[in-house]
């Protein structure tokens, strides 16, 4: 008697559990969010980190004397080295800094390494017979940058069974290409802790 009761009880439990697992998959909802919102989904390098580092760096750079001088320095963006083990596209950071600086109207940017190939291709294309040579762009008129922006991002990750702590540090510097003098540099950091 007890056995049967126990069995049927367990069977009911099984059915309920099964129904729960099957019925549990409610349709996920998709909505638009605020791209500027603070994102703490995981402790990997995220959108808030990118925005924050870029904005803080821009603000710091705007106060550099070379840029404040109003001489519209020409800058080329070099690779920001990723020294972490995370796949951080540092170009996303430098692109944001670059567009903010450009909007400030204080800096101009020369074509960078990554875009050089495309630039040359277009320059050469216009030399071909298909173009009106009077209006085509001329070779040998590109303007070189006076300064280069470079840097690196590093991280320190500490992890135990219940806590994961990540520390990121972005270092950027602006160097006078002619003289090799570093005109400005700054570090900005972020610490994130996840408790499980």
């Amino acid at each position: 008697m007890t056995t049967f009761k126990r069995l049927s009880g367990l069977a009911t439990l099984a059915v309920v559990a099964l129904a729960l697992t099957l019925g549990g998959c409610a349709k996920p909802k998709t909505r638009y969010g605020d791209p500027g919102a603070v994102e703490t989904v995981t402790n990997q390098f995220g959108s808030t980190d990118l925005q924050r580092l870029a904005e803080e760096m821009t603000q710091s750079m705007l106060q550099a004397p070379v840029i404040q001088s109003g001489n519209l320095p020409i800058v080329t963006v070099q690779e920001v080295r990723n020294k972490t083990s995370e796949y951080i596209d540092t170009r996303a950071i430098t692109n944001r800094i670059r567009s903010s600086l450009q909007k400030s109207g204080r800096v101009r940017f020369a074509v960078d390494n990554a875009d050089m190939q495309k630039q040359i291709e277009e320059l050469k294309r216009q030399q071909s017979q298909y173009y009106d040579q009077e209006k085509a762009v001329q070779q040998g008129r590109m303007v070189g940058a006076g300064y280069r922006l470079s840097g690196e991002i590093t991280s320190i990750v500490k992890e135990t069974e219940d806590v994961k702590d990540v520390y990121y540090q972005l270092f950027l510097s602006l160097t006078n290409i002619q003289t090799g003098i570093e005109e400005w540099s700054d570090t900005k950091d972020i610490r994130k802790t996840t408790e499980r």
């Binding site: 500027g36 603070v38 808030t48 924050r52 904005e55 705007l62 106060q63 909007k103 400030s104």
Partner: peptide, 20 residues
């Protein structure tokens, strides 16, 4: 973008910025 700020109890912090 929103910038997160952690404030310890009974503490002051100075937030600085410069016009874009």
């Amino acid at each position: 973008s929103w910038k997160p700020l952690l404030m310890y109890g009974n503490s002051r912090q100075t937030v600085t910025t410069i016009a874009p």
